[in-house]
Design a protein around this nucleic acid. Structure first.
Lengths: 233, 233
DNA sequence: CGGCGACAATAAGTCTGACTTTTAAGTCAC
DNA sequence: GTGACTTAAAAGTCAGACTTATTGTCGCCG
């Protein structure tokens, strides 16, 4: 699932990053380079590289004569896919899922509207194919197959919008959908209404009906929000 | 304006980062560590730290026996504030401004709607104050003063939404507004209609009218989009 | 002639130790 | 108490030696 780590510093990150976002070192905590390198049994140079990356995510700040300070949450680069993954794996997963879903409900309808006017023929075909895949996996505990097509559907919409900022949220949406499937309704089949909506969105985009694509996508994301309210109130 | 760089590796980044996002090293280019450290006259350890940060932004990928490869644009972490700043300073600034403004037009209305129900009394007061500041700087070439209040207004809306993903876009909006003021209409006074809309948004939020706050903010962002169409077609 | 496996060259990765620089904090005189 | 001065602690920098993964090549065999 996750790309295999390349290099020692990446392995340190995969351990230290989640520890910070998970609250093991609360904001204001001060870590020291040589203690860290002792703890993770790596040389200081490797440790420095890891800390530099955390610093670029605004998770920590390194100052001379002080040490490595954990920054307050609002400073964190919450759009960094790695940070998102770490936080979704941690304790405040529910709140995280909610704020990401709210973001989706703002962005995806707009993206769908743009996609209706910008999508290439290939992208239209891909959307239809995804929608078909969702339908055919919508009954009988085929959640994994359903998820794959669901993710690809939303990824395609975001990419087809032609806006790179929207396109880059494909990974975020994928994480959210995966999280939902794996941690909430693993046993139930997906909502039939949602499936139908996806099919209709594919239609609307194919027919270049921006208004309808936007409205239908809004319904999808609103449904996702309501689902969250029901399952994690 | 920009925070003074702390450390050598940061200085290297400030030079190498814009070079990459600016296209001086097109995607697929291969750089080599020791050549880079020669070029920037820093030790390899410093260079490695800089490359690690670029790697965490998905601007480059470092592989053994190959070197440091510049990744294709769609891979880039375009939500990283530093990447945004680098790109806005570079050649494709216009396209960048456009995609950021489209993002704004999706996010800010939703944020304003949420702000209407979540804003604290202090935040309502801050909004009103910003709006007043905008009005009083809206005539007679006081663009810098206007800009400060404009930025603070949008930042407050995003923060008051209560959604951390929205809140984190405050810096992005600030960059966009700054860019617009400094590179396009430096000589003209701001559009009076926009000023009025800001005042009305502050009102709507204060009166907890989510629907109106959202609609008015949509008008603001649509105005920003149209302005872009006129000035950079 | 084409594929496969061993080998060698290459560039990143890692570690270590010595040194420098910044700066928080303590100290002392006034 | 306030100021300037000193000290020490921690990150920052550098250089060099060594390790390891990867890739291209070359020769062998089918």
């Amino acid at each position: 699932m996750t790309a295999q780590v390349r290099g020692l510093h990446a392995r340190v990150l995969e351990s230290l990053g989640p520890a910070i976002t998970g609250g093991a070192y609360p904001p204001g905590s001060v870590l020291r380079m040589d203690e860290l390198s002792k703890e993770f049994e790596v040389s200081r140079s490797v440790m420095r590289e890891a800390v530099r990356v955390l610093e670029s995510m605004h998770l920590v700040e390194s100052r001379r004569r002080v040490g490595v300070t954990v920054l307050p949450t609002p400073e964190w680069n919450v759009y960094d896919p790695q940070v998102i993954r770490w936080r979704l794996a941690g304790a405040d997963r529910p709140r995280q899922l909610r704020s990401l879903t709210v973001l989706r409900s703002a962005v995806e309808p707009a993206a769908a509207g743009l996609a209706a006017t910008h999508a290439t023929a290939e992208q239209c075909a891909a959307l239809t194919e995804c929608a078909i895949g969702m339908v055919s996996h919508s009954r009988g505990r085929q959640l994994e197959g359903y998820l794959i097509h669901d993710i690809e559907f939303h990824r395609t919409i975001l990419r087809a919008s032609g806006n790179e900022m929207f396109a880059r949220l494909g990974d975020v949406v994928a994480e959210v959908l995966t999280g939902r499937t794996h941690h909430q309704v693993m046993f139930e089949d997906p909502d039939p209404a949602a499936v139908t909506l996806h099919v209709k969105v594919a239609e609307a985009v194919r027919e270049r009906d921006a208004e309808r694509a936007q409205e239908l996508t809004r319904e999808i994301t609103l449904g996702a929000l309501e689902e969250l309210d029901v399952l994690a109130p």
